[in-house]
Amino acid sequence: MSAVIDKARCNGCELCALYCPLDVIYMEDGVAVVRYPDECWYCGACRQECARDAVSFKFTPAMLGI
């Protein structure tokens, strides 16, 4: 798990896919998709760039559980 993009809110501006430092976000059918969720660094750059508040973060059981 990782950054999570709310498809309903995404307006397809592509900024998150353009800027993600780990290259994990791609555009699919006009919306941004986290294609490589296990490679997310949780840096929050995508959320900061998103004008539509479409990005949130989900922490894995390993992160919260240990």
Binding site: L18, Y19, C20, P21, L22, C43, G44, A45, E49
Partner: peptide
């Protein structure tokens, strides 16, 4: 750059 300079590297998020 292998990422995008707007948000690449150590200080991508701040």
């Amino acid at each position: 750059d292998k990422a995008h300079i707007q948000r690449s590297g150590a200080i991508a998020g701040g």
